[in-house]
């Protein structure tokens, strides 16, 4: 994973989120406060800008800049969570490297979000898409997949994780106020995580 690919990833994620902004907002309106699409579109646009401000020296620096952009502009719960996640991933990724190192970076992202938000799998959050994605990515990498194949596996697992949030009752974030009424809906944060991983698969396609 080189710097150009890293920048392309975040740029693609920003595109996908912008394209699906109203879907994310609708999901958040159903069980939250209806701003997730706008928040993350604003945040990822800022991430792209942050990466562009001074040519990042490494993939890691690119992700750290993206994380700072996200923290600075997203607001809401998702801003600090994604921002911290990307910064942690950037620190782990450093000068970049092979598919194994990208897997480690994704895991660092997961841990960062878990630590800050205190959510675990099953709470109906970002974690429910990200955790299975990290497992799938690392499994694929362990089985000798290349970056694209591992990213595809991760994106598919995130989609499945997203689908699995539907029957869950939220225990973290705004949706938790709904109690049982949060059941029956996709979690907006899990949905945006699935887009972010799909973006990685897209930009690593041969």
């Amino acid at each position: 994973m080189d710097t150009a690919t890293t920048i392309a990833w975040i740029t693609r994620a920003a595109e996908l989120v912008r394209a699906d902004e109203s879907r994310l907002t609708a999901l958040d309106a159903a069980i939250g406060d209806g701003d997730h699409g706008a928040n993350l579109a604003r945040g990822l646009a800022a991430a792209v800008t942050a990466m562009g401000e001074k040519e990042p020296e490494s993939p890691g620096k690119a992700l750290i800049a993206a994380g700072r952009g996200l923290v600075a502009k997203t607001g809401g719960a998702s801003g600090p969570l994604y921002g911290t996640g990307f910064r942690r991933a950037g620190k782990e990724l450093g000068d970049g490297g092979d598919v194994g190192q990208v897997g480690a970076a994704l895991e660092a992202m997961l841990r960062g979000i878990e630590e800050l938000g205190g959510a675990t799998q099953g709470d109906k959050t970002i974690i429910d898409a990200l955790a299975p994605a990290v497992v799938a990515f690392q499994e694929a990498a362990g089985n000798g997949s290349d970056l694209h194949a591992a990213a595809e596996a991760a994106a598919d697992a995130a989609d499945a994780g997203l689908a699995a949030t539907v029957p869950l009752q939220a225990r973290k974030g705004r949706a938790s106020y709904l109690g049982p009424r949060s059941v029956g809906h996709e979690d907006p944060g899990a949905a945006s995580t699935a887009l972010i991983l799909r973006a990685l698969a897209d930009v690593t396609a041969p």
């Binding site: 209806g34 701003d35 706008a38 928040n39 923290v71 607001g75 801003g79």
Partner: peptide
Amino acid sequence: PGEVYTSPVPD
């Protein structure tokens, strides 16, 4: 003051 119904950012 953040955006409408959205928390302000750290900076």
